[in-house]
Each structure stands twice: as C-alpha cells, then as structure tokens.
C-alpha cells in the first residue's frame, strides 16, 4: 500500500497529461474537457511546487537552529542566516498583505542591495579560478587536448571584439566552429540526452524505476 499508491499516482497523472497533448474535446461526453484537465493538473502542480520550496527552509532552520542552541563553532553565522531569512520573510509577507509604496521599496532594496549583488559576487569569483586553471591545468598533453585548446583559443579571440583587429579571420573561423562543428557535437549530445530522458521517464511512469520512493 505504502509503495503501490505512489506508483499509481505517478502513472495516472503522467498518462492523463501525456494524453491531453493528443486528445481534445469533452472527457466521457461530459462538460469537462481534456484542456481543462491539463490546465487543472498543471495548476495543482504549480501549487505543490510552491510548497516544495519550504522543505529547504525547514532543513536550514533545523540545522542552523541546532547549531545556535548548542552554541557550536560558527553559531554567530547561523544567527545571521536565520536572522536574515526571518527579516526577508517578515518584510515580504507584510508587503504581500498590507503593502504600501514604502514596504514595496524596502523589499526591492533588500533584493537589489543584499541578495542580488551577493549572489552576483559569488559567481563572479569563479573568473579568478578560470584564470588560474587556464595557467596551471590547461595543457596540450595529447592530440585531443590540443584540439580542445586550439578551439578554445580561437573561440576566445572570435568572441572578444579585439580578435577581429588582430586577425580579421578570427570571427569567421570562430563562427564556423560554433555554428557548424559545435552545433553537430551539441546536437548529438542533446539527442542522446533526449533519448535517455525519454527512457528514464518511461521507467518512472511504469514503476520500474522506484529510487525516488526511498527504502521501506
């Protein structure tokens, strides 16, 4: 029962949705159409997905809450994490229900000056590691590695405006690599992923793959 019901739910929902791409008109002659069915199920999906986000927050709160209660090393950081999370939630929810121009501006500022720039900086520092890796790890050790390296250098020269000034053919060769050779490689890989994904979907739909249900 505990394992069978989820398998049935996945199968029924999945098959109904797939069918809705092919079928039109009323279901069993009633007023309810395939289009409405698809719309209702996806609407439910939107709602359940919104709930799913909270799980991560509960986990974060549990882990950092424990750290704070037991005053483990770094608990000050945990206080900062929980504190920031609570402030964002409080301002956001207040803004949602009793929002004024002031609260809207406050929430926007919290996003513009805290969340967004910190997120951007987190990703920006990767540029330094790419530079370091280019110097230390990017070696023409074999014929294949050399092909990769030459393609990368041409691409870099082609995509930076200065490349055309150094040699007018850089953009032409770069475009050819991107539009022809890369296109062929990416298409082969993407088709492989699509076929694999389709097979995996069928395995889940038919209950052959049950990894997501965990152990008994």
């Amino acid at each position: 029962m505990r394992r069978e019901v989820p398998l049935v739910i996945t199968f029924v929902i999945g098959v109904l949705l797939i069918a809705s791409y092919f079928l039109q008109g009323p279901i069993l002659g009633g007023e309810y159409t395939w289009k409405t069915l698809s719309s209702d199920i996806t609407n439910w999906g939107v709602l359940v997905s919104a709930f799913a986000v909270g799980i991560a927050a509960v986990n974060l709160t549990r882990i950092h809450g424990n750290k704070i209660t037991n005053q483990r090393p770094g608990f000050i950081n945990s206080i900062a994490l929980i504190g920031t999370m609570v402030i964002f939630i409080a301002v956001g929810v207040f803004n949602k229900h009793f929002g004024t121009a002031g609260t809207r501006a406050l929430f926007q500022n919290m996003f513009d000056y805290i969340l967004s720039p910190l997120g951007a900086a987190m990703f920006a520092i990767i540029a330094f590691y790419v530079a370091s890796a280019s110097y230390r790890a990017f070696r023409a050790r074999s014929a294949e590695a050399t092909m990769l390296l030459i393609a990368a250098i041409i691409m870099m020269m082609a995509s930076a405006p200065i490349g055309a000034l150094i040699w007018s053919k850089f953009p032409v060769i770069g475009k050819w690599l991107l539009d022809v050779v890369n296109m062929a490689g990416q298409r082969g890989i993407r088709l492989g992923v699509a076929i694999g994904g389709f097979a995996a979907s069928m395995r889940i739909l038919l209950g052959i793959d049950r990894g997501h249900l965990g152990s008994e």
Partner: peptide, 14 residues
C-alpha cells in the same frame, strides 16, 4: 577583450 588576451597569454605561458 583584454581579459581574453590575458587568459590566452596564461594558457600559452603555462
């Protein structure tokens, strides 16, 4: 542009 030149320089020197 200059960033790309530097990275290419890094690859060549390395």
């Amino acid at each position: 542009s200059l960033g790309h030149l530097l990275i290419i320089g890094f690859i060549i020197v390395g």
